[in-house]
């Protein structure tokens, strides 16, 4: 459509291609460097000139996963992320659908209110959350952190999904209503299948937020529910011999989410194209 259809523009395309290659490489240096650091002894990690050629060792990767309970923390992270996604996206989609079907003058203020919640500095919610958790005797349990993450994630999910549902013509649900469908049936049978790309996007962003969240995870979890980001931060302490470990842990923490990204990448672009950004 765009490039190939205009002959003589091949060269520009090549220039763009090469420029992108260079940019991507520079952009990824921090990651590449971290991978190299994770394969080095600390002595070689910080030198002038930078040590590029060295004998790689996997011992820090092995140590992180075998001696530091990282598998356990990964499980915690996965449970908490899955919990958050599976509560946040359905709940948010329902609300967003309703929001897209009520008159705009009522929907507007609700959306603004949701924004407001999002803008409040999250760190100030940490103390109230903790007080609440203590009161309910739920500190160091999965549901507490999941609920907290769902709550701070709701405004964004609703906002995102609202955009999708606006793109789906109202005539469709009205036709369903005329056919005798209830609200719920109309939503489930007619609307939901159309909103799937959007839900994938919402799920991906919920996943990113819940998998990567640090402050609430630090404060609301404990021995039993500690997540990967908290575990990895515990190495950032005094001793530089743990920096190779940090790097190894950091790479490890990225892998699952990179995998998910690779699987969902296509859906991400398609989903975003389908309407989220038109709200």
């Amino acid at each position: 459509m765009s490039a190939q259809s205009y002959p003589g523009r091949r060269r520009t395309t090549w220039v763009i291609f090469i420029a992108l290659c260079v940019f991507t490489f520079i952009n990824l240096t921090p990651l590449i460097w971290a991978v190299l650091t994770s394969l080095k002894d600390p002595r070689d990690a910080f030198t002038i000139p930078p040590t590029i050629i060295f004998e790689p060792t996997l011992k820090y990767h092995i140590e992180v996963w075998t001696e530091n309970d990282f598998v356990f923390y990964l499980m915690n992270s996965l449970i908490i992320s899955a919990g958050t996604v599976f509560i946040s996206v359905p709940a948010g989609s329902l609300a967003a659908y309703a929001l897209s079907r009520i008159p705009r003058r009522s929907a507007g203020p609700i959306l603004s209110a949701l924004f407001t919640i999002r803008m409040f500095p999250h760190m100030l919610l940490a103390i109230p959350f903790f007080v609440m958790g203590t009161f309910l005797n739920m500190i160091d349990t999965y549901p507490l952190l999941i609920l907290a993450l769902v709550a701070i994630n709701q405004p964004f999910t609703i906002w995102l999904m609202h955009g999708f549902f606006l793109e789906i013509p109202r005539d469709l649900d009205e036709a369903a209503a005329i056919d005798g469908c209830s609200n719920w049936q109309a939503f489930r049978i007619v609307i939901l299948p159309l909103a799937r790309p959007g839900m994938t996007v919402a799920a991906l962003f919920s996943l990113l937020l819940s998998y990567n969240e640090f402050l609430f995870a630090l404060i609301l979890t404990g021995t039993d529910t500690k997540t990967l980001p908290v575990a990895i931060a515990s190495f950032g302490g005094e001793d530089i011999s743990s920096w190779s470990l940090s790097a190894a842990g950091a790479i490890g923490i990225m892998l699952p989410i990179v995998l998910v990204m690779l699987l969902l990448q296509r859906h991400l672009v398609r989903g975003l194209t389908a309407g989220a950004v038109k709200g």
Binding site: A82, G83, D140, T141, P143
Partner: peptide, 17 residues
């Protein structure tokens, strides 16, 4: 499955406390 995980997590944390 999610619900089961959640429930089991509550149970297990109660024991380890």
């Amino acid at each position: 499955a999610t619900a089961a995980l959640l429930l089991s997590s509550i149970a297990s944390s109660a024991v380890a406390q």
